[in-house]
């Protein structure tokens, strides 16, 4: 993994990889979408079950992205790898996007199922807080002008956040048992029929692939921008 940590090496390796990654994403999305539309309506949830195919993968990727961001931050902080800093920085807006999509689609699923767009349930509340963690991280990156300094500060924040996330989740869970009102219909449930599992998994693969495709494009963008900036300032060894 560290063999590719040099930005120059990363540019060389990622260039031929990018079309394949993008292609795989497109194939997974095409197959996933077809299966999502072709799946029969659930006997209980009716057609709203189709929201699951876009909601659950978004939620998965939103969480995975924060784990990725924290890991990249750790590597950036300890090994001082500029590439890890770039990866963490570019993962954040994507993570925020997937979190927002998970929240919105969840809300649109909740209306017909629970009778409300918003329920202060443990998972929804944790996700809203995750969204704010992402926003805070992005805001800190943008607020500090010095790039290395911003990277370190943001990395510390990401690590504080990832340590706090389980505690936040626990506290929110504890809080919902405190305020438990009417029992809400558990969506999904432990048993999902196989007709729904396949579209779900393929869509999840598509979302994950899309995350990494976009991450790669954005990382390449950032490296190109940095190179252009160094060159414009007269530094001969950009990159």
């Amino acid at each position: 993994m560290f063999a590719y940590a040099n930005p120059k090496r990363f540019m060389e390796v990622s260039a031929p990889l990018l079309p394949w990654l993008a292609g795989a994403t497109a194939v997974a999305f095409a197959a996933g979408l077809y299966l999502s539309v072709a799946a029969p309506p659930d006997y209980q949830q009716g057609d709203t079950v189709r929201i699951m195919f876009i909601h659950v993968p978004a939620a998965w990727v939103a969480m995975m992205a924060y784990g990725f961001l924290a890991l990249a931050s750790l590597i950036g902080l300890i090994n001082r790898h500029p590439l890890a800093d770039v990866a963490a920085k570019q993962a954040a807006p994507l993570g925020a996007l997937f979190t927002a999509l998970a929240l919105i689609t969840g809300s649109l699923w909740g209306r017909p199922m629970w009778g409300t767009y918003w329920e202060w349930d443990g998972r929804l509340t944790s996700f809203l807080l995750l969204f704010f963690l992402y926003l805070g991280y992005i805001a800190l990156w943008n607020a500090i002008e010095n790039e290395t300094r911003a990277a370190r500060a943001a990395a510390i924040l990401a690590l504080v956040g990832v340590v706090n996330l389980p505690i936040i989740q626990f506290s929110v869970q504890w809080w919902t048992t405190l305020h438990q009102g009417e029992s809400i219909l558990r969506r999904g449930g432990p048993l999902i029929a196989a007709v729904y599992l396949w579209p779900l998994f393929i869509m999840a693969a598509g979302y994950t692939l899309l995350f990494f495709t976009l991450l790669m494009v954005r990382m390449r963008t950032e490296i190109l921008q940095r190179r252009a900036r160094t060159l414009a300032m007269g530094g001969p060894n950009a990159g």
């Binding site: 057609d47 709203t48 189709r50 929201i51 876009i54 689609t105 649109l108 017909p112």
Partner: peptide, 21 residues
Amino acid sequence: YLFAGKYAAFVLPAYGVTALG
């Protein structure tokens, strides 16, 4: 199926927002 039955008002916006995002 494509129009998501009686829940179309929720299913289609969900897909629409996702596509937009």
